[in-house]
Every structure is written in C-alpha cells, then in structure tokens.
Design a protein around this nucleic acid. Sequence first.
DNA 1: TTCTCTTAAATTGGTACCAATTTTGGATGA
DNA 2: TCATCCAAAATTGGTACCAATTTAAGAGAA
Lengths: 209, 209
Amino acid sequence: MNTLLDDSIADGEPDATQLILADIQSGILQPGTWLKQIDLETRYGRGRNEIRRALDRLAQKRIVEHVPNRGYHVYKADGKQADDIAEIRIMLETGIVPKVVATAKTSDIRNLRALADRFESLILHGTVLELYEANLNFHRAFVQLSGNGELDGVIAELRQRTSSAPVSQWKTRARIEKSAREHQEMVDLLAARKADELKALVESHIRQG
Amino acid sequence: MNTLLDDSIADGEPDATQLILADIQSGILQPGTWLKQIDLETRYGRGRNEIRRALDRLAQKRIVEHVPNRGYHVYKADGKQADDIAEIRIMLETGIVPKVVATAKTSDIRNLRALADRFESLILHGTVLELYEANLNFHRAFVQLSGNGELDGVIAELRQRTSSAPVSQWKTRARIEKSAREHQEMVDLLAARKADELKALVESHIRQG
DNA sequence: TTCTCTTAAATTGGTACCAATTTTGGATGA
DNA sequence: TCATCCAAAATTGGTACCAATTTAAGAGAA
C-alpha cells in the first residue's frame, strides 16, 4: 500500500523529500538547478538537518546528483537513460499481463474501468496535475492486479527517475485523448482476456509516454 | 558500471552503508537485530553522523526498518515478499532474453563462458563469499548484454532486498553444483540462440535461488 | 514471590556551532 | 581591455552538545 517514497506519517508534516520531489516533478525545479540548502530551508520551512537528509535520499534515488563540496543539483536524465528506464517499465508491466488476465475478477475490471473513466472525464475540466494523478492511479491499479506487493513500489521508483518533469509531459490534447482511449482499450482487452494483444498495447502505451 | 549502492570513491574509505550491508548479507547481523548507533560507531570506526546516514539509506532501501525513537533493526522479509521480489527479477532477466539472444557477439558469449567456468572452479576451493561474488558477476554480465544501462542497478537493488542472508543461501553442495551446471547451460542456449528455452531456464534458475 | 510504580541510565534524534572548500568580487599588472 | 591573482563572502559538511523518549533497574506494596 505504501510506495517507497511515502514516508509521511500524518498529513500535518509531509517529509521534505516529498516536497522537493514534487517541485522537481512539476518542473518548478528544472534539471540542472543547484539546490542550495539555505534556499530549501526557507522555502519549505524545515531545519538544515531535514534538508540534508532529503537531499541525500534524493541522491540515492538518482533524482538529484551530489557533487562533494559543491552541493546537489537536479539530475539530467539523457535520452538513453530515459529509454532504458522505459524499457524496464515495459518489461514489468507487460510481464504481469498473463497473471492479471488469468486472475482478474469482474469487480477488479469494473474498478479499473472506473479509473479509466475518471481519467477521461478529467480531459475537459481537470488540471494537469489531476490528470497526472489519475493516470498514475490507473496504472497503479493495473499493477496491483498482479498480486505482487513489491512491484508497485519498484515501478513508482522507476517512474520518478524517468522524466524530470513528467507532469508537463501531458502537453498536447491529442496525446491526452489517445492515452485515455488506450486506457479504455486496455480494460476491454483485459475483459476479453486477450493477453497477447494487451501486452502489445501496454508496450506501445508506455513507449509513447 | 556503478551499482546504486556503490558510493565509495577510493578503497581507502568504504562507505559505512556498504560495510553494514555486507555484514547483514553475510549473516553476521541477523534479521531482527537492533542496530545500536554506538555499537556501529565503534565497530566500523566511523562518526555518529555517517552511521546515521548509513542507517537512513538502508532504511530507504528497506534493508533495515526504522522505528522512531527506538532505532533501526534488520528487516525480516517474509516469504511473500521474497517471492514477489524474485518474481520481479524473473520478469526482468527473462525480459531481456530476446534482445540478448539477438545481439550477443561471440566475444560476449566467450566472456560469459569464462565467468561460468570461474564459478564452477570455485566450487572446490573457493570460499562461500567468493562463490557469491562469482555468481553475482555471471548474472551481471548476462544483464549487461541487454545494453540497458539502468537494469543492472535495478536488479542489484532487488537482490539486496531479497534474502537477508543471501550468502548463506549457498548451503548444500548439490545446490551449488546445480547452479554451476545451469550457468553453463545458459551459455549453451545463448550460443545456440534458443530464446524460449533460455527464458525457461533463467526463470527456474532464479526461482530456485 | 510478583506486580507496579518510580527513578536512573541509555539511546535516539535534533540543533547549533565551526572548520574546510568553493565561489564571488575586485584589485593589480600585462 | 583582458587575464591573473588575492581576499572576502558564501556554501557545504562534519563535530559536539543537549533535549526528548525509551528502556532498564530498583524500591515498595499486595
């Protein structure tokens, strides 16, 4: 149920790691930006210690890079790395397809359909962030159907490392609508228990973003 | 070339994280053991700060668990989690088989054969740790053939989370010899470019440990 | 004896301070 | 004018100290 980064106890005090990560993923902190500890302290209202720990964690996750005595800067993932990571995601999300097809109950499929509908409905009146979240929820629900409790965390970690500004990924309207259609089609293929076709769709869906 | 945990600059000062991890994986620090900061300080000859950072990193990797105001203890992975992680490794290491079969050069295969031989030769006169390392090297080399630069790190991370004492995994002589034979067979199937059979072998090889 | 409450010791975890290094800004000289 | 060197400021990163919490020990009552 917990992702690898979900270290918050209560909503009252979200971990600085998450706050910084959120700003990186939303594009506020661009790739290459140097993250000065003092700035982060004032920006997030946390002590020096917590900031240092957060930066170390993000460095471990390869979301920022640490240069000794110089500081931390937002990691620039080159094209090759992004492709490699996408490739890993494809292996995992297509790898579970046989099991998902074999074990998904009709209630699971109904639930997945609801999430696909949710994403679709947000095309018109949702914010970019809401779309991003809805997309995340759909894919997470799909992965959960594998019954593998560790897989969701692994994929979440990979997704965090992909694009440094994944939110802004949802640029064109056409692309969003295509994603929405593919979500629906994924549910269709799952309901029809067509494993191979579903695999192919999942692959192209991830590959295009 | 770097794994996710390889933060050492020179051999002169290995990171405390690696030292602690090594002792966990070698079984010196058993699952459930409470890792007291003072003990770790004296044991590894490092300052309080570095120990704290190391513990936080290991907690992020889910190798130890953190209980606020109580400390850190070695994580006990239950059977389900170990199975789930093995399942993920299978998806990844079988997922690359088609590409490896398609692109491996004869020199690559020769190199892999050498590593399989190396493992085999250590059965008689090698220590358990050397066997563990040799097995690691074989699998790493295999993964490298995929051309995916990120995959090796991901799998390394997964392997670290699997068994808490993976070194002691090589218990029986029969099991070691079976592993050695399977390594050789993997190289055979790769040389013969038999993708499907190789996939099946990789799966059973990982599944049995 | 055994349970419970109280007190002391041990441990964690945060804050503040300070040293080491790097960067910036400006002065000097070609 | 431009490059080089030096000094001051800024930044990182480690060490030491101290507060909060937990654990262990011991005294006292049933």
